[in-house]
Structures are given as structure tokens and as C-alpha cells.
Simulated scan of single mutants.
Amino acid sequence: MAPIPTPPTEPSDSPDAYVGLAADRAEHLARERGWSSVRALAPGTIVTMEYRVGRLNFEVRDGRVARAWKG
């Protein structure tokens, strides 16, 4: 019988830690901390809401992270 797969993990840091940072700095820091996917979105961008382990989303206004969330 095949072993039960281990679900992927994601970094344990809080998305709130990125709010207020310059977008490029926040993306660099997120990748250093182990986020496999980082996406920067303009305010009001329409996105699908499926949850992806390891993805960090940033809403960027005037070059700074205004909001951050997992998935």
C-alpha cells in the first residue's frame, strides 16, 4: 500500500507583517521566508478565491502593500 502523502506546508509568518512594506521588498522577504508563490494585485482586481497552500497575496497601492492574505 502506498504511504499517505504529507500535505504541503507554508511559512508560519503572519501576512500582516507585510502590510506597509514596499511591494518589491515584501515580495523578496516573502520568498526568503519560504512562500512558493507571491502575487501582487492592484486594488479591486478580480481574482479567483481558490486556496493554494504556499501562496501569499498582496494588494498594492502606491507601491506599498495595503493588504496581505494567504491562499
Rank of each mutant, 00 (worst) to 15 (best):
Y51E: 11
L29F: 05
R39I: 07
W69D: 07
E32R: 10
T6A: 15
G20F: 08
A17P: 00
V60H: 02
R64A: 15
T45V: 08
T45Q: 10
L29M: 10
Y18M: 03
A30P: 06
T48W: 08
N57L: 07
I46Q: 13
S12I: 06
V60K: 04
D13V: 06
L56H: 01
L41G: 10
A30Q: 02
V47T: 14
P43G: 07
A66I: 12
W69L: 05
K70P: 08
Y51T: 14
V38N: 02
T48I: 09
A30W: 01
F58E: 01
R67E: 12
M49S: 12
Y18A: 05
A26W: 01
R31G: 03
P11M: 01
T6I: 15
F58L: 01
A42I: 04
G63S: 05
G34M: 06
A42R: 14
G20T: 09
R55Y: 01
V38D: 04
G44T: 15
V53L: 10
P11L: 02
E27P: 08
Y51Q: 12
G34V: 03
I4P: 13
R31E: 04
R33W: 04
D13F: 04
F58W: 03
S37P: 01
T9H: 05
L41Y: 14
A26L: 03
M49P: 11
T6N: 15
P15E: 00
A22D: 12
R67Y: 11
G54Y: 02
R25K: 10
S12F: 01
I46V: 14
E50L: 10
V60T: 05
F58Y: 02
V38C: 01
F58C: 01
A23M: 09
E10W: 06
S37C: 04
S37T: 11
P8N: 06
Y18I: 02
S36Q: 07
E27T: 13
G44R: 13
G20S: 09
E10K: 10
A68Q: 00
P11G: 03
H28Q: 13
R61A: 15
A42H: 10
G54F: 03
P7I: 07
R39W: 05
R64P: 12
A40L: 09
S14T: 11
A68F: 00
K70N: 06
A2G: 13
G44F: 12
D24G: 03
A2T: 14
A66Q: 15
E27I: 07
R33A: 05
Y51F: 15
E10G: 12
P5D: 08
A2I: 13
R52Y: 09
P43R: 09
I46G: 12
W35C: 05
R67G: 05
